[in-house]
Structure formats: C-alpha cells, structure tokens
Simulated scan of single mutants.
Amino acid sequence: MSQFYVDPNIAKASTISTDVYTSKAIFEAAKEKIFASSWQFIGSREIVKFNGDVQPFTLLENYMNEPLMLTKDTAGEVHCLSNVCTHRGNLISYKQCSKATNLRCKYHGRLFELSGKFISMPEFKEVENFPCEADNLPVLPLFNWGNLLFTSLHKKDEAPIYLSEMMERLHWLPLDEFVYRGDLSKTFDIDASWALYCENYLEGFHIPFVHASLNSALSFGDYTTELYAKASLQLGVSKDAANCFDLPKTSIDYGTNVAAYYFWVYPNMMFNFYPWGLSVNIVSPVAVNKTKVEFLTFMWKEEKYDKGAGSDLDKVEMEDEEIVHSVQKGIVSRFYQHGRYSVTRETGTHHFHRLLAESLNH
C-alpha cells in the first residue's frame, strides 16, 4: 500500500497520514504534485481595466513564488504571462502601469508585445536561429467567470473540471456586478498547515461546538455537503427566511432558505457566497506549519452586508484559527496517527483527503 491511502468507503476509512501536516519533504513535493497543476484564483478583471494596463503579481507568494503579470493589449484582450525575460531572467514589469504599448526589459532592452510575443533585441544580429518560439514570453491559460480570473502553471485539467458545478449552481448570479473591496479584505497568518485549515473548512460538524453565532443563524439539521470531481459545496440553510438569498425559480435551490453557499475548490480556494456578495478565501502555504489566508471581499448588495451567516466573519475566523492551531500541536503527538470520519458529517474532509492522496501518490 502506498504511503498515502484513504479508503474510498468513508465508513471504513481512516484519515490521511499526519506526514501531510508535518513533513518538510511532503510540503516541498506538494508544489509540483498539487499546486502547479491546479487552477488558482488571481483576482478580478478590474486589475487590468483599460487597454495598455499591466499588472505584475506573484502566484502563491512565499511558496510557489512564480512571477507573473496580467496585460490588456490594444485590442482589449487580457493575457496572463510569465514576468521573466527570456534573455537573462530579469523581471520585466516591476510595478503596475497603464497606457503601455509594449513590454521592455530594463536589463538589456529586449522588447515584447503585450501578448508576450518577442519583437526585438539589441546586439543580437549575429545570433543563429534567432528569434525562436522560446524567445516569446510563456503564455499561461486564462479562465474567467464574470469578473473572476483563474490560471494554472502546468494545466493538467481544464478549468471547468474545478469550477463548472459552482458556475452552474449559481448561473443566476450577476457576477459582473460584484466589485472588489480592498478596504474590506484582510490577510491572516495561521500557525498551522494549509491542509489542516482546508479540512476544518470542509465540514460543518464543528459549527455547534466552535461557532455559537454562526450556529444560531444556520439550521444544523439541514446543513448538507455535495461532492464534485475537484470541488465540494456546503449548503448553509437558515433557520428562518431572514437574511437569505432571493432565489429565482430557475435555481435548483428555489424554495429553500439558503443563507450561504460554501464552495471549496481543490486544493486551496474557498468561495463563500452570501446575500451581500462573495468572500474568496485563498489558502497559501508558507511553511510546514505556517499558512497565509487571504479574505477577498466582492460586494454585490451593500445594504445586506454583515448580516446573517455572512456576518462576524472575523470572529468566525478567530474561532477557526484557535482550533486549527490546537490541532497542529496535537497531530505531532507520538500517540496520534489516524482518526476516523463521521459518515454523515465529514464527507467533505474525506473527499479532500482522497484528492490529496491521489495527487501525492503520483
């Protein structure tokens, strides 16, 4: 049997090896085996709103540390490109800029189109077989849903494998109307493994024990989890009709008092939809027992903000952090190796562990 095995039968299964949370070798291996082939959220189309806009960014900073940039060319097409010059590896774009007509490396003047295509290079007339395809900037795949943008470093599967169920379930939501609010967005530093943080998110089992205010807003008996190929949904149903979505008849959930849609997308993204808008949580590994979590706020209906299941998010986060910190201390115990799953309440965590095992065993 491989090092990582989780029985597909949840009633028989034990949790994944604690090496996932404690091993530096596994932490490093996850860069290529898990994160490089997955799709990652990179922000809103508002980042490059106008033709000629260029926005450099680092994908999963402090872990993958991949320098990338978004550009919008003169035809209005958005591109996701490597931000590393194909000559000597210098960063091309150092900071956000607008009204650009091309990309020029400040080191030796190599010039590229905003699409990443090589244009020219000084003092290279004598170089043979030049230019070639390798002189263009690498172009990454780009997928957008409404205003939301996603990319993948080494695309293994198409984006819909990860996102289609969420998109179909919420087909009625006008995502183009959701506006990023930096003033309401926050970053939290967690003293625990990224995987522990994710698996805590993936079950509502702990809500009555950890989140008193959230538990008062949700009907625990109606809390359900749905599993997909590379994602899952926890449906938060309210105890009454207050602070719920006004669902159209075209919604599969029409007639249900939905207070929140909690979508998780493998391996590290959470899309929490509330009647007021969306909170995107990006879980970024930093070290074996260090994690950065970004809470990115996209406002839709501000008059509904901070009500119902979508209220007191900072308080809920602090409660989760306390538990996850405690678990990180516990899983290094010589007396703990594996636990078992609640068949009715921990299907999301079991699903996550199965996906982790599949990735790490390849």
Rank of each mutant, 00 (worst) to 15 (best):
Q55P: 02
E32M: 05
D73Y: 05
Y63M: 06
F295C: 10
F295S: 12
L233H: 01
M167N: 05
D320L: 06
T71R: 00
M299E: 12
G277W: 06
Y262L: 15
V78S: 04
S251N: 03
N62G: 06
N9Y: 06
V139I: 09
G221W: 07
P122Y: 09
T101P: 03
L247W: 10
N102S: 14
F4K: 01
T74Q: 15
G204C: 12
N136G: 07
N83Y: 04
I42M: 03
K315H: 05
D314R: 12
N129Y: 11
V48G: 01
S152T: 02
Y201D: 08
I331H: 01
N200T: 15
T344R: 14
D7Q: 04
W39E: 00
H108K: 09
K49W: 06
V332F: 03
A260C: 13
R88N: 11
V179G: 01
E165N: 14
K49F: 10
D189W: 12
R334G: 05
I207F: 07
P122W: 10
S2V: 08
S93I: 13
P275D: 00
D157T: 07
S14T: 11
E46M: 11
S232A: 11
D240S: 14
K329A: 13
G348N: 01
A195P: 04
D135L: 09
L103H: 04
E303G: 09
T349V: 15
R88F: 12
D183R: 12
L114Y: 03
T250P: 07
L296W: 10
G146V: 06
Y261P: 09
M64R: 06
D246A: 13
V78R: 05
L111V: 14
